[in-house]
Amino acid sequence: MKSKANKGGSRWNPARWWTARSRPDEEDKPLEALRFVVLDTETTGLDPERDRMLSIGAVRVHGGRILVKEALELYLQQEHFNRKSVPIHGILREGTHPRIAEAEALRLLTDYTGDSLIVGHHINFDKAILQRGLYRQGMQPLRNTCLDTGLLYQNTLLKTPLLRKKEFYSLDDLARRFDLPRTDRHTALGDAYLTAMALLHILDLLKGKGIHTRKQLLKAGRVG
């Protein structure tokens, strides 16, 4: 998987990344200049300790655009298998997609994300299950800053006592709000794409709330 981050020779490196982040010009970077990787994982269940990833989908958002060619779609070989999740994800143990080992998938993913901001809908779960996988494979944990579209969306809402905000906005809520097609729900890349589209809408709404820089964005939607 070739990515722009790799061209600069900046394969993800925590040390480099920390120094980059602390630079003040980095903090003030406008939203348009930020690199996002929007990702979603499909898993065998909701327990990061016990459950495993079935597939990972990710898209790159840069300069307000989603680059179709650079979408990442990985299907993982399964040892652990939870029959109950099949009806939701439609991923069978022996699917038609070529499958790769978890270690390989995680390596491809960390290469792909580089030092981008990682975005996801309720990303805490995806992050937990990814970290668990990285740990299992004896790899470095993800150190990227993570943003949650659920949290970011909360910040776009009107601040008024009249609006009873939900505690939890689902991806379907966002899709309805932004009128996005839900054809590929519950596939990793489909959800990642839907989340990326939602992110583009949200970023615009946030600008209306006076959020223009990386620093302000992190304040609004950073998790973990």
Binding site: R65, I66, L67, V68, M197, L200, H201, D204
Partner: peptide, 11 residues
């Protein structure tokens, strides 16, 4: 061709 497309949002 579709693979080369970039998808963008305009307010």
């Amino acid at each position: 061709l579709s693979l080369e497309v970039e998808i963008m949002y305009k307010e």
